[in-house]
Design a protein around this nucleic acid. Structure first.
Lengths: 214, 214, 214, 214
DNA sequence: GATGAATGAGTTTTCATTCAT
DNA sequence: GATGAATGAAAACTCATTCAT
């Protein structure tokens, strides 16, 4: 019943699978060799496909291929964090504390980084100059924004406008700190997402709480 | 005494000045156009030199040139932070608190970023994958180490080994947070180094203090 | 009796119609985009067929497809001119003068060019170097030969061998002149075939007549 | 005294010679293989140079290279014909008849074609579709214009405006006829420029003269 | 018979790097 | 020591052509 080609994994796949195949290979190659140093041949070889397939299913150009990689990985990370932290607006029955939300969000963050190290590398370690800088910048900004939203909830002692204005740099610092920890984790530190999350919380939570009351 | 070329400002400079001239141009060009998109012609033109001169005084290859740029800028940053924070070992007469040292260090960090934006860009925004990943990684590690040293002094409630083991990820997080803030600063946030330093201290200082006593 | 595909207008046409469909599309596309710049996809799209169909009914290769285009268009032109000029051998009851034959031939020539501009373009404006040069050369030679035959009849004052030897370059010149006029016509000159024919006759007829008697 | 490399003909030539070297090779290759079928490697090999040299001295792209070829060859042909036919305006002491001017012009035309067959091929046999169509068209238009100018002088029986309006298509036809003859010449006919010129004059001169008086 | 999907082979173009002067 | 001129090597991208369905 299964077509005989399923064995080789080559011919006649539905487009979505092909695109995924191509993006997976691209993320991996770009992460390992670096976007500029990697050639489309490298990507094709990693995907087990011919170069034209990479072009057909990868957006038509190397740059567009990277763009799609960045978007996919950023979406993955953002979705993971958002789901774990809970709905942005405090739903009626949702009585979790901000600390708890933050904890869960950070755990998801570190868990995703650990699971998809290549994707993270594409997001954070590629050249942030040139045409693609904006793409990376936007992807990171979306994450920072989501975190800022979370932090705003904690800064209730202040008026909303001030809270938000303060939340953004704090979120930027927090995300940066998470990245720094992730780097340390990748260089030999623990890979346990929970431990990493606790470490970061221990560092910043008191400070955040204090900022509530000015 | 003055070399005869002072008239044109060009010919027959001592090698060190030549190297500086080349590195300055390279940092600028790499920062603006990006390492991979920039050509050696671009560097030569920016330096006002011929290409062979760039090769002679820039290390002999494009990659080595970038390596030297990274090292110089990392040194600049590390030196600046170190000087501001004070001697690593508590000198007898030095009774400044750790908080004060950290504050001064952070101010120097943000001040240097602001003053030498191109250098910072070369350090943090260039490809951190590929052949040069190690170089960047090492440069950042040196900074993280220096900060860890600083933090160790605060974790006096613990035995030295534990203190140091704890200090490294905290330092990684702290440096990451500083980078995140710097990004935010570059994207429209305040550029005042003191304000940035205070913001970061407010976020982490209480947490750090608490970690002292377990 | 009507093939069942008349409903869609597509499927299951007799091979000849398919070939015509393919050649029509090819002539159009090659003429507009140029043989080399046009892709087989372009031809297939213009024909409303899939690419394999173009290969099946178009001769199996792009080059052969062009060859067939050239042949068909050359035949069309030659047939049109021949029919208008009359039977090559002076048929008994045919007492039209050579001038009249030439006039009718030229009118047919210009009329065909105007009506089938794409075909003419394929014949005269495509690369006349490379592998296909011979094909174009042959196609033109056939036309020149037919004209030479016509002119021979006028050079009756000379012995047949001389007449024919003289007729060929004259025919070549005449055909070239017609092409030159056609170019002018296409670039803004009149498109009236009769006017173009008269213009050309006015230019060359006296000369041709004179050549009759040495 | 002569630099030792003059023996190989390779290194350190002045730019003009290099450009000529490149154009010569390009004209030859484009003429023989055809513009589209020829690769830049072919041109480089023919020139005995590396490909980058072809790009440096050939305008930076294949298309620009062809453009320059076309321009050079068109200039060569136009200059040759113009010089032979004499100054366009009848200079006071210039009492040559129009027929004489035309004869000399045609001789020069055929002589140049014969001498620079490759250049002629590039001018007349390359694809006249695509981006380069205009370039070829313009080159030919300049020649047709020059001939029209010549013919205008003969149509003195008519008012100047009419004369010029009539002269252009006649010139187009005449140039076309010359090209047709040249084709015939290249396919086995005589290569004697004088003979070719006389043949063409015999064909058209009476007609031209008659057009003078309506 | 008809086609969507797949690829091998090639082309233009760009640089990092090095001589000959 | 300094440079203009030269090149080897590679990389993105395209397309005629053919299977597997």
């Amino acid at each position: 019943m299964v077509p005989p080609t399923s064995a080789t994994g080559r011919r006649r796949l539905p487009p979505e699978q092909r695109e995924r195949q191509v993006l997976d290979a691209a993320v991996r190659v770009f992460s390992r060799i670096g976007f500029h140093d990697a050639s489309m041949d490298d990507v094709a070889e990693q995907a087990g496909l011919s170069k034209p397939m990479v072009y057909t299913h990868g957006g038509g150009s190397k740059e567009e291929l990277l763009r799609r990689c960045i978007r996919r990985e950023a979406d993955r990370l953002l979705t993971s964090v958002s789901l774990a932290a809970g709905a942005p607006a405090d739903a009626p029955g949702d009585d979790r504390t901000t600390e708890d939300r933050l904890r869960r969000g950070l755990r998801a963050f570190f868990a995703t980084l650990t699971t998809h190290r290549d994707g993270w590398s594409v997001l954070y370690r590629q050249a942030r100059t040139g045409t693609l800088a904006d793409e990376v910048h936007d992807a990171r900004a979306r994450i920072v924004d989501r975190v800022a939203e979370l932090l705003s909830a904690e800064l209730t002692g202040r008026d909303p406008a001030t809270a938000r204005a303060l939340a953004t740099p704090l979120a930027a610092a927090l995300v940066g700190a998470a990245e720094g920890l992730a780097d340390w984790s990748a260089s030999g530190g623990t890979e346990d997402p929970d431990a990493l999350a606790e470490m970061l919380l221990a560092l910043v939570w008191t400070g955040l709480s204090r900022l509530r009351h000015h």
